[in-house]
Design a protein around this nucleic acid. Sequence first.
DNA 1: TGGTAAACGAGACGGTACGTCGCGTCTTTTC
DNA 2: GAAAAGACGCGACGTACCGTCTCGTTTACCA
Lengths: 214, 214, 214, 214
Amino acid sequence: MEESSDVAGTAAAAQETSDDPTVPASRRRGRPRSQASREAVLRAAAELMEPAGQAKLTMEGIAARAGVSKQTVYRWWRTKVDVLVEAVGAGYLDIPLPLPPDTGDLRADLATWLRAMAVEIDGGGATHLSQALVGAIATADSRSQQIHGVLVAPLRHSLHERFRTAVLAEGVDREMLAETVAAQLIMRVLFAEPITEEWIAALVELVAQERLHA
Amino acid sequence: MEESSDVAGTAAAAQETSDDPTVPASRRRGRPRSQASREAVLRAAAELMEPAGQAKLTMEGIAARAGVSKQTVYRWWRTKVDVLVEAVGAGYLDIPLPLPPDTGDLRADLATWLRAMAVEIDGGGATHLSQALVGAIATADSRSQQIHGVLVAPLRHSLHERFRTAVLAEGVDREMLAETVAAQLIMRVLFAEPITEEWIAALVELVAQERLHA
Amino acid sequence: MEESSDVAGTAAAAQETSDDPTVPASRRRGRPRSQASREAVLRAAAELMEPAGQAKLTMEGIAARAGVSKQTVYRWWRTKVDVLVEAVGAGYLDIPLPLPPDTGDLRADLATWLRAMAVEIDGGGATHLSQALVGAIATADSRSQQIHGVLVAPLRHSLHERFRTAVLAEGVDREMLAETVAAQLIMRVLFAEPITEEWIAALVELVAQERLHA
Amino acid sequence: MEESSDVAGTAAAAQETSDDPTVPASRRRGRPRSQASREAVLRAAAELMEPAGQAKLTMEGIAARAGVSKQTVYRWWRTKVDVLVEAVGAGYLDIPLPLPPDTGDLRADLATWLRAMAVEIDGGGATHLSQALVGAIATADSRSQQIHGVLVAPLRHSLHERFRTAVLAEGVDREMLAETVAAQLIMRVLFAEPITEEWIAALVELVAQERLHA
DNA sequence: TGGTAAACGAGACGGTACGTCGCGTCTTTTC
DNA sequence: GAAAAGACGCGACGTACCGTCTCGTTTACCA
């Protein structure tokens, strides 16, 4: 639940609302920001996402549930998405992200992982959040960068980690492999397309090119 | 008001709001649907998308610009997305979709096509529309199926067409290749990631596996 | 409670929100204004004034109590004062205004009437409303004209009526006499100064100049 | 913070916020009240009234313009009105109040004075301030006494001064005469009624009864 | 001369109300 | 019956002030 938890953050950027610790204590004036409020807001936002994609996320609702004034929410976050992104970043709302196993057998590992993701997705966990986040991109003023950082980048990163250690044909762009799997998966989630064994097989086949140019 | 009618049609499916002509003329009573209104609405929706991703698309706005009563819009389309989808389907708002060329050289053709797409995207044409459409998915009640049909399917379809005739290694799932390029491209558009030569090269390399198992 | 009741209206001007009946029925289009809502709003405003000068009159509160949407209130009345003025004009909120008796004895009649007013005022009836109305003048955008019409004019008018028939010295400006009594009374109300017998006597003496120039 | 202290003083009474000098020096501890702040606040309040009846007077605004923290304002004045009243009392915001001349000719003097007031009022000087002050009465918690002291009493007082020396019919209540002129004038200001020659004549006629019972 | 206690600036906080926007529905007259 | 017009209940928006509450920082006094 800590701010600190996103420090280790893989790629996910710092969306610190910045109680910037570099500011010398002696120069911080006025009543300090209430950490209680901050946490309450993030938690409220997270909880309001839970009910299976309510998409019922309103600033008003967040403030109410957090027991905080609307102004306080607006003071620190310009938009819903900003709240959401920070909530994810700070770990209040976790996008379930199992690391791909590494048994040495890339194809098997990927398949296993994709099946795990399928379960996760069918459970509805990721779907609603992802949709909300991606949906938020539409909001004109919204920061696709941030959403990318929270939604896509971690996925890509953890996949890349697996590919990095894999035995592949020379010259294969591992970055691209990770990106491909991530993109495919996200599309699947967004458009609620089922994740079938056939699809998994085909994707693995495409991406696990250990024997190429062998 | 039918949805069932969009079963037919492969990709760029018919989402006609269907003044179903199979209904015997003798049974159609009262004032017939105004084609003028229908067109005005679709045109208005299209135009309201134009200003570089205003995302200012409201039912109220559509009706106003179309010079049509709100009720008339609601009578024939349940949601914004429905209007948008039909507008795309009816060609009022075209997603620019060049067909991949077929010079025999798959790799070159793909690269050419991707570059063309990059231009299109940088022009901003596709971005806003795509974002709006995908964004619409978030709207809880929204029909990701329809959006898929309008946004993803055609892309996938036209790519598949090119892969179908390509000389590839045996057993390669051409469907998956098309799907991969489409997914990658859409992700790129959604998150406003630049389309670089490196990325194109890597993607082509991944996907144009003519020489596999050679 | 009727609109019609203010037609007879003495001086109090027409602040009709104008369901203008001169508009030919054939040209009135769209859903007609809900009389139920209109009345509910005016009644709500009146009721919210009751509790002895709550001054708790908010647009939000009026709408809520009337069981009407805020928008509906704003659609027909630009400000609180407008609502209040119409409520008074339409008789939902009456400023108690006993007519001065006419026994032939002006001095006695005035004294009687002033005592009656004193009772009314001590009852708190008029005070809060008057204060609210006059207070409203401060609101920059507010229409002192309207308030004058509702608060001052009727008072002046009914006094003038009594002076008109009185036997006074020649050349006395009866308008001025009515105006003087009204002004004095209103000041007394506004600043919560007590109405004493001495004050009544002095005022009557000033104003009932039957014997002047005799 | 005393109220009692304004008992003394005839008209433009002292509503000093009282760094009461009767408190033994030995008991005054801590940082003393900043006179600079006090003046800045009063000046700010005065200035914010200037722009022709902005009525834009907010505690927040006063503090901001005074370069003072909100707390400091609240520490010394409970309400806006308190600030305003003190500002008037301390002469930061003067209600222009010419003394009625005394040439011996009461009627002429009154007429002259009323004309002078008319000019003042048309200039807008008094109007906005008066409206603001009277408006403030509405604020439930507000102290009509104080406002009376600042707005009405001085007017009444200076008029009374003139009537005191005037030659009038016996038994005429000079208090009442002063009160009448004051009330009439204030009503005129509040409701923005024009001050015409006719009105002046009539008022003078009513009030300057030197020759009565002659 | 150094504590100490109140005043001060800054500014965050929980609130209430504001006035507006868009939703989807309803009610009327006109075509 | 469809359509234009437009009022309606509703819910959320983002903003403005309210009056209160910490903070860290003066600044005079008293010991």
